[in-house]
């Protein structure tokens, strides 16, 4: 097996070709060996002999995970803006691959007041739907407890969205990311309905469903997702669960983490620290 992996695919073809040539002397035997060679090569491809999906990145060697430390989040919304730019998401108040929620418990109230950057008051504070800012609306109120919670696609182990997709346009990769094939999606939005977390939306430009990919184009190049990269306070953590020393492995090991809506059975892969019962 090791030998096989060491051989580049070109070298392997050459080797098999020579084998075929040698056997060619035996006439009909050659055809058989050639066919065998072809079969072997096809097998080698799916066995992970060649690196997939890119020459420098083998998805069988990673298993990605994401952590959110809500005790650190300052609600600056730089992640939301960075995500929109990184992934060319429509710059309005209704399409987000990631967003931040604010929970504020006022004195004498049982339920928290919840808003996100989408709230009209916050849009008024930023001055534009394309810019993001939390209005300081509770500045003069008696606040008992308040915190921010970043949200994004949970890249569930049992994704309800993948289950309901009629075509196979959305799927779970070997490294644990739920992706959408924008050239294959028919735009029925069944997955938008199925996601309990509201992580999916309809892309009005491409007429397909869209959502967070954990910046698959970045993580396969050794970079961090844009939101993690941009977060000034380290509230967002990302890494390889296979690597026991990765930031996410340490985050999970060193904290008592929880996931959102565990009762759905979706088994999310975004782990939270510092949220409370009203967060779902």
């Amino acid at each position: 097996m090791k030998l096989q992996r060491d051989l580049s695919s070109a070298a392997r073809r050459e080797f098999l070709g020579k084998l075929g040539l040698a056997a060619g002397c035996a006439g009909t035997v050659a055809a058989g060996v050639g066919a065998l060679g072809a079969v072997q090569e096809a097998e080698a491809k799916t066995d992970g002999g060649a690196s997939f999906p890119t020459p420098d990145y083998d998805w069988t060697k990673h298993r990605w995970g994401y952590g959110v430390d809500a005790t650190k989040c300052i609600g600056c919304l730089r992640c939301v803006e960075a995500c929109k730019k990184e992934n060319h998401v429509a710059g309005d108040a209704h399409h987000f691959r990631t967003w931040v929620e604010r929970y504020v418990y006022l004195e004498g109230e049982d339920k928290p007041r919840i808003d996100s950057q989408q709230d009209p008051v916050n849009i008024a504070a930023s001055g534009s739907e394309k810019e993001y800012r939390f209005a300081n609306r509770y500045k003069d109120a008696k606040v008992e407890k308040a915190f921010f919670v970043p949200k994004l696609c949970n890249h569930c182990t049992h994704p309800a969205c993948v289950q309901v997709c009629p075509t196979g346009a959305t799927y779970k990769t070997k490294d644990g990311v739920v992706l959408i094939d924008h050239t294959y999606c028919i735009g029925c939005q069944y997955c938008v309905q199925a996601c309990p977390y509201g992580a999916r939306f309809f892309n009005d430009v491409e007429h397909v469903t869209d959502k967070c990919t954990w910046c698959y184009h970045r993580i396969t190049k050794g970079l961090q997702p844009a939101c993690v990269e941009i977060c000034p306070v380290g509230a967002r953590v990302f890494g390889d669960l296979n690597d026991k020393q990765s930031p996410i492995s340490l985050f999970i090991r060193n904290n008592r983490v929880q996931v959102l809506k565990p009762e759905t059975g979706n088994a999310p892969n975004v782990y939270y620290v510092g949220i409370d019962k009203e967060v779902n």
């Binding site: 799916t46 997939f52 999906p53 890119t54 990145y57 998805w59 960075a82 730019k85 990184e86 196979g168 346009a169 959305t170 799927y171 779970k172 990769t173 070997k174 992706l179 094939d181 050239t183 294959y184 990919t213 910046c215 698959y216 184009h217 970045r218 396969t220 190049k221 970079l223 844009a226 990269e229 941009i230």
Partner: peptide, 27 residues
């Protein structure tokens, strides 16, 4: 389509297509 079913019920080629997108933020 090509490469459908190769790794599962999806178009395998869509994975490298998505991975090929250019990063916007450069670090």
């Amino acid at each position: 389509v090509d490469s459908f079913y190769e790794y599962g019920h999806y178009r395998a080629n869509s994975v490298p297509e998505i991975a090929a997108q250019a990063p916007v933020f450069q670090t």
